[in-house]
């Protein structure tokens, strides 16, 4: 699979180049608030990518990622402000805390199937929402947590939002490569088996319950790390972010970009976050517009933006195969970075 490795490397290099270009040409010219929106979108992508693993690969619809995000953020904030734990350690501990919670919840809830599991995760989100808003000793209650320290990496302090952008972009690139790799591993295929046909999964030696728990924990850790990043990036955390409505927004981000594609999900995330900025002219009609847009998108492209693109590629390939008969089987079983 040399060709595959080369292709991934090429993708990574061009993405890095794109990040540098974006940083130098676009980000420097944007207002601070706009950069903030983009950065937050990149941070949310950690949460959304966890949901991609869960839903897109594993077919498990979990509606409590926002709680993992919140827990990561508040643990990181609490450790740093109250216990003076250095920032990098606090961030890792935040991710760990979310992972532990996810392990516990996963073991408890993943035995259930279908709507029951979804309802369980909705319950978790509401509990999280209430705890974050009221448990003042830990989260600062309605005031939130403030005064979280700055991140210092190799002697460089990340002060402004513009400092943060390249770091977050590189993180997101690494994350996309990770997701792409996971899809090609045995674990990724086990997940797909669980998603599409549990009976087939059992008969192909996949421990369905364990696979689901592992991916749930993985998604939890990703969301928790995203939460820690959010805490350090913004310096303050307010409990009003981690509500069920935000969770629904995450689902929309994922479905909008394309549930089967990490890059699509990234676009969806940035788009949903940036939409209020783009559609300022509509201000009071913004939500109405947003609702209509979601309905139309789901009806006409249920696989999201990436789905449309993929369909076009497939159509092109079918046409090409028609022109070159007998070329059908020579593709080789490797996947495009999709």
């Amino acid at each position: 699979m040399k060709k595959e490795t080369l292709r991934v490397l090429l993708f990574a290099l061009s993405a890095l180049f794109a990040i540098v270009l974006l940083d130098q040409l676009v980000i420097t010219n944007l207002k601070n608030s706009q950069v903030n929106i983009i950065n937050v979108a990149l941070i949310f992508f950690f949460c959304v990518s966890g949901m991609y693993l869960l839903l897109g690969l594993g077919g498990v619809l979990s509606l409590c990622s926002v709680t993992m995000l919140g827990l990561g953020a508040f643990v990181c904030g609490f450790l740093n402000t109250k216990l003076n734990v250095p920032i990098p350690a606090a961030m890792l501990l935040g991710a760990l805390a979310s992972g532990v919670l996810a392990l516990f919840l996963g073991l408890l809830l993943l035995k259930l199937e279908g709507p029951c599991f979804v309802f369980g995760t909705i319950g978790v989100t509401y509990i999280g929402q209430s705890v974050f808003q009221n448990f003042a000793a830990f989260t600062g209650g309605p005031n939130g947590t403030g005064g979280i320290g700055k991140l210092v990496l190799f002697g460089y302090t990340f002060k402004t939002f513009k400092d943060w952008f390249p770091l977050l972009a590189v993180f997101v690139l690494l994350l996309i490569l990770l997701l792409h790799r996971i899809k090609q591993t045995t674990f990724g295929r086990s997940l797909m088996a669980v998603r599409d046909d549990a009976t087939a999964a059992y008969c192909m030696g996949v421990n369905v319950y364990r696979t689901k728990v592992v991916v749930f924990v993985l998604a939890g850790v990703l969301a928790g790390f995203g939460g820690s990043l959010y805490a350090v990036h913004n310096g303050t955390i307010s409990a009003s972010l981690f509500t069920f409505n935000t969770q629904l927004k995450f689902v929309i981000m994922l479905m909008l970009g394309g549930v089967m594609s990490p890059i699509g999900a990234l676009f969806g995330t940035v788009l949903v976050n940036y939409l209020p900025e783009l559609a300022r002219f509509a201000n009071s009609y913004l939500n109405l517009l947003y609702g209509c847009l979601i309905v139309l998108l789901m009806i006409f492209m249920p696989m999201g933006l990436a789905g449309i693109l993929k369909e076009a590629v497939v159509r092109y390939r079918v046409q090409r195969n028609k022109q070159l008969p007998g070329d059908g089987g020579k593709g080789g079983p490797s996947d495009v970075v999709s």
Partner: peptide
Amino acid sequence: LPFKHAKWPQAMMICTIGAGTVIQEC
């Protein structure tokens, strides 16, 4: 109706969220 043959039942769910937003905003 548009989702009767959809591969992802979740699309239907998202659609209800959108429709709910539309109803509320109206």
